[in-house]
Simulated assay, not measured.
Amino acid sequence: MQTMPAHAAHHDDHEIETLEEFDAVVSARGSLAGFRVQAVDLTDRTRELLTTGAAGAVFLGCPMREDAAAKVRAEGALVFPPLPDLPFDPYRGHVYTPDELFASLADGYEATPDARAYAWLQRTKADRDVYASTLRALHDDAVSDALDELLSGARVVGVMGGHAMRRGTTEYEGAARLGRELARTGLTVATGGGPGAMEAANLGAYLAPYGDEELGDALRLLAKAPGFTPSVTDWAAAAFEVRERLPRGGRSVGIPTWFYGHEPPNPFASHIAKYFSNATREDGLLARCTAGVVFLPGAAGTVQEVFDNATPNYYESRGEPTPMVLVNRAHWTERLPVWPLLQSLARERSMEARIALVDRIEEAPEALKRLLG
């Protein structure tokens, strides 16, 4: 069974991200000096704020009463106020959950925080508003920090592939079985977090505690809404129906972006690190795949990911090269001849022993295991 470290166990000792952590610090230290309090509602902690030193503290998006805010400011604390009119929290201390991003789905996808954040991005990008770009950068940095905390100590395997793979196909089932098998070996499955091959791999990890019968039931139910067009609402609702019927889902990570706003995140990743900046997201996704990456057939985005991953392997800029397994020989040698170029790059370098091409998706886990040694 796949494991993932608990979120709060690994963050910086001077970060406070929950009320429980706030109370523990106040009780144990009697001072908030030097601490960073991130997106914690402190409206019910006025007495503590008024009686506890806060010199050098930073409060990021923490609701508090004005007298408490004035007191900590007077002591030299920095207070970044909450921004309630935004459809997202730029100071958030945790990655997203599917329930959070898809809240209000019953009113249509357009009503969800995910769709509203994309609409906000489109408006502010068109305005070239420096304030908005600062908020996007703050948000993405907070998400990266939360993702690092979440994955600390985890062995992460990436599964990359195109969004065009549809539910109800043998390819989709194969990708789901791949995600399930990888999760069952104790690896944390990470994907680009979108539809298609990415969703299938997250689905497989979600169904790691379940058998073939439940997998078959889930695949049949999902096939009723095979793609996120024409209706994201129906596509997402089918996924939540599977989650409701099979609630003991395994954990995995999706790392999508609002840059591709037409692609919704898939609801099977238990943890979703969604970014405004696609460049930050791409680099962060691949850098965190410490146990290697499996590349399923895809188009331009997946080709980009292959070489985004190959570059640090080639230069060994992240240390020892990580495994790369390409699936589907015809796709990667004929339709998009990525494999010959990858082989040429790897020749006589240490990454040469860390790349593999397999024909069938069922061969990928064994190839990955072999490359990991």
Score class of each variant (00 low, 15 high):
P5R: 14
A6D: 10
A9S: 09
H14I: 12
E15I: 09
E20I: 07
E20F: 05
F22R: 01
V26G: 09
S27C: 08
S31R: 13
V37Y: 04
V37T: 03
L42F: 05
D44I: 10
D44C: 11
E48W: 08
L50S: 03
A55G: 09
V58Q: 09
P63M: 01
A68P: 00
A70T: 07
K71D: 06
G76D: 05
G76H: 09
L78W: 12
P81E: 10
L86W: 08
F88N: 03
H94F: 14
P98Y: 04
S104N: 14
L105A: 06
A106H: 07
A106Q: 13
E110V: 11
R116Y: 09
Y118T: 05
Y118Q: 03
Y118M: 05
A119C: 10
W120Q: 11
Q122A: 11
V130M: 12
Y131T: 10
S133H: 11
A137N: 11
D140A: 03
E149M: 11
G153R: 06
V157E: 03
V159Y: 04
R166W: 08
R166P: 07
Y172D: 01
G186F: 04
L187K: 09
G194M: 10
P195E: 03
M198I: 04
A200S: 13
G204W: 00
Y210I: 05
Y210H: 06
G211C: 13
L222Q: 02
A223R: 00
T229V: 15
W235Q: 05
A236W: 05
A236G: 09
E241W: 12
R243H: 03
L246W: 15
G249D: 04
R251G: 06
N266Q: 12
F268G: 01
S270C: 08
I272Y: 03
K274H: 10
K274T: 07
F276S: 01
G284C: 07
L285C: 08
A287H: 12
T290R: 11
L296C: 02
L296F: 08
G298M: 07
Q304G: 11
V306M: 03
E320D: 11
P321A: 02
T322D: 05
W332Q: 06
L336W: 12
P337T: 00
V338H: 01
R347D: 12
I355S: 06
V358E: 00
R360H: 15
